[in-house]
Simulated assay, not measured.
Amino acid sequence: MAASIGTVGDAYDNSLMESTIGLFKTELIKPRRPWKTLSEVELATAEWVDWYCHRRLHGEIGHTPPVEYETNYYRETAKHQVTVKI
Rank of each mutant, 00 (worst) to 15 (best):
N14D: 15
K36M: 09
R55Y: 14
Y69A: 04
G6I: 01
Y74N: 09
D10T: 12
K36Y: 06
R56G: 01
L57C: 04
A2G: 05
A11P: 02
V84Q: 05
R55T: 13
L16D: 11
R33D: 07
H58P: 01
D10F: 04
D50F: 05
I29W: 02
L23G: 00
T64I: 15
T37A: 01
T71E: 09
A46S: 12
A46F: 10
S4T: 07
C53G: 07
A78W: 08
W35E: 08
H58N: 12
D13E: 09
A11I: 07
S4W: 12
N14R: 08
E27Q: 13
S39H: 13
L38Q: 00
P65S: 14
H54P: 01
Y69Q: 01
I61W: 00
G62R: 05
L38G: 06
M17L: 09
G9Y: 04
L28T: 02
E47F: 02
G62M: 08
H58A: 03
M1P: 00
K25L: 11
D50S: 08
V41F: 06
A11E: 06
R33M: 12
I21L: 09
T7V: 09
E27H: 03
K36G: 07
E60M: 07
A3F: 06
P31H: 03
L43G: 03
N72Y: 03
D10H: 05
K85H: 10
Y73K: 10
V8Q: 14
V84S: 07
E76Q: 13
N14K: 08
Y73P: 00
K79D: 08
N14C: 15
V82E: 09
T20E: 04
G22P: 01
M17W: 04
I86V: 15
F24D: 00
E27I: 03
L23C: 11
Y52M: 04
Q81R: 14
G62P: 02
W35C: 12
L57V: 05
E42T: 07
T71S: 14
M1Y: 04
S39T: 11
L23K: 06
K79F: 06
P34A: 15
S19N: 15
T64G: 00
L57A: 14
I29R: 01
I5S: 12
P66Y: 00
V41M: 15
S4G: 08
Y52H: 08
P66V: 02
Q81F: 09
C53I: 05
E27M: 04
E40D: 11
R75E: 12
A78V: 09
E18K: 05
T83F: 15
N72I: 01
L16F: 08
K79H: 08
K36Q: 15
